[in-house]
Simulated assay, not measured.
Amino acid sequence: MPSYPTPSYASSYARSGPRRRTLLTGAAATAGAVLLSGCSDSGSAEDERSSAADRLRAGAARDSGELLGRYDAVLAAHPSLAGRLDPLRAEVKRHKTAFADGLATPSASASPASAASPSSSPSAPPVPTDEKDAVRELAKAERELAKRRGSALLDAPDELARLLASVAAAGAAHAYLLTEGDK
């Protein structure tokens, strides 16, 4: 192969300093380091979000368990309300199970046996002796819990936010159904 002489003007274009390939290699290494450090930071942020979501789920399952205890207490005090309250109680039980099933740690979730059996909550307030007052108290508890869940969904991850929104809407519907007979 013939060798071609370098033109004399080529030396005037020669740059002093690093070549383009060196700069690109250095930039790639720097970008890689930034990405790696970003991954480790986002990993811990992801863990924090997952932990916060688990706490939110556990709290929602506990709240549903407490509401279920209220239903059980009212039904024990006023068995004649079973026809009206049983369908709503069954929904609350499903809500508790839905929240508990999504928990990452089995120790934080309710056991299937406790989710299946009716149990009264020790923190449930005393049941009024008047049926209408007892139902009104249930409606108030449903309404308050629906409001808290509506507020909590703003900070929840997508899937949990949808579940919270759905259960909050169901709670609001329960409150309406419980107070509908008062009108």
Rank of each mutant, 00 (worst) to 15 (best):
S50E: 15
G32R: 07
E159F: 10
S120M: 11
G59F: 00
L145H: 02
D47P: 00
L160T: 12
E131C: 02
A139C: 04
F99W: 10
L177T: 09
K140C: 06
V135G: 02
D86L: 11
A52M: 09
P18E: 06
T22K: 09
S166P: 02
D158Y: 14
H95M: 03
T30K: 01
K140G: 08
D182Q: 12
E159H: 12
T6H: 02
G32Q: 01
K183C: 05
A53H: 01
R94M: 09
A156L: 05
A170R: 08
T97H: 03
T105K: 14
E137Y: 04
G32Y: 04
L85A: 03
D130F: 03
S107M: 08
D54T: 10
S42E: 12
A134Y: 04
A61K: 00
G17A: 06
G43S: 14
R148H: 08
A58Y: 01
R55M: 11
H95Y: 01
A169N: 10
A156C: 04
K93R: 15
A33E: 04
A27S: 11
C39A: 15
A139V: 03
L81Y: 01
L88I: 11
L24P: 01
A104S: 15
R57G: 06
R136M: 09
R136Q: 12
L164D: 06
R19T: 13
Y9A: 10
G32A: 14
S80H: 07
V74D: 05
G59T: 12
A134Q: 00
G26H: 07
S107V: 12
E137D: 14
D72P: 04
A139G: 06
A104V: 09
L178Q: 02
G171R: 05
R84T: 11
G150W: 05
R20F: 13
R136K: 14
P106C: 09
S121R: 01
R62E: 14
V135R: 06
Y71F: 15
E180W: 07
E142Q: 15
K93S: 14
T179A: 12
S119K: 13
R15S: 14
A172C: 02
C39F: 14
A58L: 07
D133C: 01
D130Y: 06
P79S: 08
A146F: 00
P126V: 11
A53M: 10
A14L: 13
A100F: 00
L163C: 05
L68E: 07
S8M: 10
P87K: 03
R143D: 13
T97C: 09
D158T: 15
S151Q: 14
S80G: 10
V167L: 00
A152V: 09
T22Y: 04
L154P: 01
T30W: 09
R70P: 00
S114W: 08
G102N: 11
Y9W: 14
A76F: 03
L56N: 07
R84C: 00
L177F: 08
T179Y: 01
A175E: 07
R84V: 06
E131W: 00
S42Q: 15
A76Q: 11
